[in-house]
Nucleic acid binder design. Structure first.
Lengths: 232, 232
DNA sequence: TGCGCAATGTTGACCAGAAAGCAATTGGAA
DNA sequence: TTCCAATTGCTTTCTGGTCAACATTGCGCA
C-alpha cells in the first residue's frame, strides 16, 4: 500500500509522537528525510492521507494524527486511541463475505428538534433521532447536537429551510459566529452573533429580517454552528 | 480459488511485505516470477483483486494490500492487521475499551477532487480521501462520490465555496436538478440542469454568471447532487 | 485427434504517479 | 504586524501502471 518513502515518513511521524508527544512539523520531517524542500513532504503527507494512514486538518500546524500503522510496524496507534468501529453499509460495493466491517471516521450526534431561523419557534426539545456526521466536523472538545432548520432567515449564509445544522455546545461566541441563542429563556434561534458594547445583536442573513438587539442578560448562547448537512 | 501463478504471486507479495515493509512494484514482481513483461503481472493482480485476496488503488505505486491469505499459507495476514481502521471517537464520551462496536448509519464515499461552480476549472480527477456521509443521503441505488466546490456560482442555491457535495452517479437528469455536467468531454461543472428542446441549459444560481446553453451532444451528465456537507 | 477455452506470456506504446527542487503565497499564531 | 508553518504552482526526471494486440500452452471433451 505504501511506497518506501511514504513508509519512512510514517515511521518517523510515529516515532516522533512517541518521544515528543506531538507530531513533527513539515520542517522537522524535511530534515528527517534529508529533503531540501517541504513540498516533497507535503506530497508524501497527502499520499498517506489518501491511503488512510493519517488524518489531518488543513492549515493547522502539526495537525496530523496517525490513524493506523502498516502491519510491518505492527503497533497500535497512539495511546488513548479508541477506534470506534462503525458498521457502514456501502451500497453497491459488496464486501467479500469474510471481510471485517468497514470502519468509517464518523460520529453520531443527537437530533434535538427544530430551530427557527426566522421568527423563533420553539426551544430545543428532546432527542428525536440520531444523525451521522463526518468526524472532522465534531473534532475537538465539546458536546455536539443537531437541529433541523426551519425558515429562511439564514439563507444568505447558505443555510436553507430543512437543512440540518450541527452545533457544538458552548456558552461563548465570537463576533460573526453563527450561534444558537436562547432569548429570554424562551425562544431558541439561529443567528449571527455580534456584540456591540454591552448589548448583543442577533443578525439574520436575509435582508427581509431585522437584526434584533438585546441587552446582555437576555440572551444566552447555547452553541455554535460547526457544520451543516443537507439532503436533496 | 487460485491458480498456481496467482498463488505464487500472492506468496511473493506477502513475503515482500514481511521483509521490506512495502509491497513490491510490478517490475519487482515481474522479476520474481521470471516474466519478461509487467502486463502478465497486471492480469494476475486483477485476478487476485477479483477473488478478494488483495485490495488496491488504481494508478498508485505499490498500492496493494493483502486482505486475506488462502488456508495453504496459514490463515491470518498477520497480527495487528486491521482493515481501514479509522478513528471515530466521540469527544467527552469515552466508552469502555472493551465495548462493542457501535453501529451508525453512515457510509463513506471517495472525495474525487474539486469541481468548479464558477468557470469550470478541472475535470474530476482521482480520489484524494474519503468522507463519511449520513446513510440516508446515499440511500437507494447507485455509486456515490464527493467533490469539493470551488467558486460561488451556486451560492443562491445555498452551495458555498468550500462545501463538499455528494453526488450520485447517473447519466440522466430532470429539469431543475443540480448536476455534475461534463462539457465537451473537458470541463466538469456543477450547475442546474434545464432541458430546452434539443439543447441543454446549465444555469448557475448566481446572477453574476450567465446561463450557458449547449447542444445536446456537448454535455454529458455525470451525476446528480444528493447531499451537501459543510464544516465551519 | 483436434476444438474450444481459459490461463498465461510477450511486446511496446503510452500515460500517470512518485520524488525532488525552488519560488511564491496563504493562513494562523504570537 | 511579523514570523513561521503550510499550501500551491511549476518544472524535471525517473519509475511504475495500464492497455491493446497477438502468441503460446495446457486441459477437458466431443
Amino acid at each position: 500500500m505504501l511506497t518506501r518513502k511514504q513508509l519512512e515518513l510514517l515511521e518517523f511521524i510515529h516515532k516522533n509522537m512517541q518521544t515528543d508527544g506531538v507530531p513533527p512539523s513539515f520542517d522537522e520531517m524535511k530534515v528527517a528525510l534529508s529533503l531540501r524542500s517541504k513540498s516533497g513532504i507535503h506530497r508524501l503527507i497527502t499520499a498517506l492521507e489518501e491511503r488512510g494512514f493519517i488524518r489531518r486538518m488543513a492549515h493547522r500546524a502539526r495537525a496530523i494524527e496517525i490513524v493506523r500503522l502498516p502491519e510491518s510496524l505492527g503497533g497500535e496507534p497512539g495511546p488513548g486511541f479508541r477506534p470506534r468501529v462503525i458498521e457502514g453499509d456501502r451500497p453497491n460495493a459488496p464486501r467479500p463475505a469474510n471481510s471485517d466491517p468497514i470502519t468509517i471516521h464518523a460520529t453520531e450526534v443527537p437530533l434535538m428538534g427544530r430551530i427557527a431561523a426566522g421568527v423563533p419557534i420553539e426551544a430545543i426539545s428532546h432527542v428525536t433521532s440520531q444523525v451521522a456526521v463526518p468526524g472532522q466536523m465534531v473534532s475537538g472538545a465539546g458536546e455536539h447536537y443537531a437541529l433541523e432548520v426551519k425558515g429562511d432567515s439564514m439563507i444568505d449564509a447558505g443555510i436553507n429551510d430543512g437543512d440540518v445544522v450541527v452545533i457544538r455546545e458552548t456558552q461563548v461566541a465570537q463576533n460573526g459566529d453563527i450561534v444558537v441563542a436562547l432569548i429570554e429563556d424562551q425562544e431558541a434561534t439561529l443567528k449571527r452573533f455580534l456584540r456591540k458594547g454591552s448589548s448583543i445583536a442577533l443578525e439574520a442573513a436575509n435582508p427581509a429580517y431585522e437584526t434584533r438587539v438585546y441587552p446582555e442578560g437576555k440572551v444566552r448562547i447555547q452553541g455554535r454552528l460547526v457544520g451543516l448537512i443537507r439532503t436533496y
